[in-house]
Write a protein that binds this DNA or RNA. Structure first.
Lengths: 118, 118
DNA sequence: ACGATATTTATCGAATTATTGGATTAAGAG
DNA sequence: CTCTTAATCCAATAATTCGATAAATATCGT
């Protein structure tokens, strides 16, 4: 059941520090970033960073490798690719909500006026 | 700050019932599905369904309209589009992990053996 | 207005998640 | 071997979330 994996991936990214960390890792590319460096960049205690990185790793979104004393984390593009693929196929009307609807980005623009009509 | 909205959208989808509900709503298209019908489909108590739908609505992923006694929920394609856009731009190396990497979908194919042996 | 249907709200307990400080493991330098 | 640095593990705490029952609100047909 891949839905389960998708849920874990979504949950992993649905957290401020983890989303930020993942973005940095994506930007960093193959080289990756050491856990401590990441903790320093995001200004969170090492133990907290470790916790969040473990969550990302558990969700399969990042990989780790040791480089001497440091542990380098890298974004797993294939996993992210898979997540995007699932969302596109299952949550975008089957035929990619991209390209279909031409360039509307409500999450970028709308400030979300009000949800409840009182 | 759209990162905040993205996080809420991800969190909203990172739950079994909500992901399932959203998938059904996407499939249903414009017509949408009534809250009660959704609760029945997913076999969760109406109040629980209402709770989850509220989460989706709060994240801006679904819209609601009243049809006589029923409240019809519909997927907000624009919001989903925005989410996909953000993920593509910020979490896929800047230049769409799709199409770039040719056709690898780890979440679809790989059973990912050593992630959790449960 | 009344009774029936549909949905939301309120509330509670159980479970999960987030955060932190300190202990522990691993690797390199002297 | 000891010291230093890097990262994770552990335990305790705080906060959030989930699921279910019960009460409240809104709408419809009569």
């Amino acid at each position: 059941m891949q839905a389960n994996r998708v849920i874990r991936a979504l949950a992993a990214l649905a957290q401020e520090h983890r989303l930020a960390a993942f973005r940095l890792l994506v930007q960093a590319g193959e080289d990756g970033i050491a856990a401590g460096t990441l903790a320093d960049m995001l200004d969170v205690p090492p133990s907290s960073m470790s916790f969040h990185l473990a969550q990302l790793a558990n969700a399969g979104l990042v990989t780790q490798r040791r480089a001497s004393r440091s542990i380098i984390y890298s974004a797993d593009y294939a996993a992210m690719n898979g997540l995007m693929g699932y969302l596109t196929e299952n949550c975008c009307g089957g035929v990619s909500c991209f390209g279909n609807a031409a360039g509307l980005h409500s999450l970028d623009r709308e400030p979300d006026p009000e949800r409840k009509s009182a």
